[in-house]
Amino acid sequence: MDLPVTPPVQPMLAKAVTAVPAQPDGEPEWSYEPKWDGFRAIVFRDGDDVEIVSRGGKDLARYFPEIVEAARTELPDKAVVDGEVCVPREIGGVQRLDWDSLSQRIHPAASRIAKLAEETPAAFIGFDALALGDRDLTGEPFSVRRAALLEAIPVGSPGARLLISRVTHDAQQAQDWFTAFEGAGLDGVVAKRLAGAYVPGKREMLKIKHKRTADCVVLGYRVHKSGTGLGSMLLGLYGDDGEVRMVGGSSAFSDTRRVELQQQFEQLRLGPDQVAPGEVNRWRSSATGEWIPIRRELVAEVAYDQMENQRFRHTVKFLRWRPDRDPESCTYDQLEVPLTYDVYDVLEGT
């Protein structure tokens, strides 16, 4: 591709915070937009050549042929735009983002992909521009990149598959969006500095989500105490040293789902007899804690309440699989870390 910005490019990331940042007095500092719930992707177009590159560097083009065709007809001849691949569907009489339909689009069979492209077509929601024509925009402030995005993706074109996210400079409106847009299947609000450059792979944006979640690599599982089905899936996160650490587990599954998960995980076992020693359980001395390791290929999104000593304090809730995420991207820096106080700062008279 003959573009000023060529793949692969790591997308600029967001750091989790607990509230919408306020605007300072005078000129606005922040641009706010909805947080879309889909597959993060950067679309590169150079004439008929189109690549849709995931956050992990994989080309998603084969899974979304309708987006490839839309890029050829709706984008300028040379353009690089950042955004989210989503599947909007009518649910309960309104259009909502449908994660299940989106995740089913990652399929090895070309015939299945073609069928789903017709039945559950995807849309690309653009929210940043990295290049337009011969211009590399990554060093420009977001205000300039936003103008280029509006130039690259015309607003209001009937039947368009490439769309643009709304933005506002009003912090109160962003807070209203945080509540109102949840009904459309959106995931919260993102804040970007108007003067900020596009920094690949860095958490330069802020995100305010409806729930505290983490993407974890599945390290293995324990068999249910009944001897049939999965008892719990064990989860890990990668540290700054590149080593993975076990951070907890998820175990709230129906009997039917336990059997399905055990069958799925059995295919990923490292060896038929390989078992890993578990940690000592101070509450149940009879429990060995042994578990079965599997290949580190699956990423699960889970809901959690607190972190303590680099682990989840309580059992977490499995939310969904993330086929768009690479296991190595499951790192600690994605987590929302609350402010740390000395316990005596919370006591009266100290």
Rank of each mutant, 00 (worst) to 15 (best):
Q262I: 03
L194E: 07
L339C: 00
G242N: 09
E51F: 00
A79P: 12
L234H: 10
F178K: 09
L268E: 00
K115L: 15
K78W: 02
R212C: 08
Q10V: 04
Q310M: 14
Q262Y: 01
V81K: 08
W283C: 00
Q104E: 12
G229N: 06
K207Y: 10
I125P: 00
E66N: 11
S157A: 14
Y304H: 00
Q173S: 05
D37F: 10
G349W: 01
R135Q: 12
D324P: 06
R105D: 12
L234F: 08
A14Y: 08
L194M: 13
G57V: 09
V337N: 11
V223M: 03
A252L: 14
V299D: 01
G188C: 07
G126D: 03
A122M: 01
R45I: 05
L347P: 09
I292Y: 01
D82I: 12
S143D: 12
F39A: 07
D240S: 15
D176W: 13
A110L: 06
S232F: 07
D98I: 05
P158E: 14
E151C: 11
P4F: 08
I164W: 08
E140L: 10
L102A: 12
P338C: 14
V244P: 02
N309E: 09
F64P: 04
R222L: 05
E243M: 15
F124W: 01
T168S: 15
D49Y: 00
T213C: 04
A70Y: 03
R322H: 08
I208R: 03
Y344F: 13
G183W: 05
D49S: 05
E69T: 13
L298G: 05
T120E: 01
P21Y: 12
E84R: 08
L132Y: 05
R269M: 04
A16L: 10
R320F: 01
P21C: 08
P154V: 15
G56K: 03
A184V: 05
K115H: 10
I52L: 13
D305S: 15
A14F: 04
D128F: 00
L163Q: 14
T168I: 09
G47R: 10
R45H: 04
S232V: 05
R193L: 11
H107R: 11
E66Q: 13
I125S: 02
E118S: 12
E204Y: 02
V189M: 07
M246G: 15
V343I: 11
D128M: 00
P65W: 03
A252G: 09
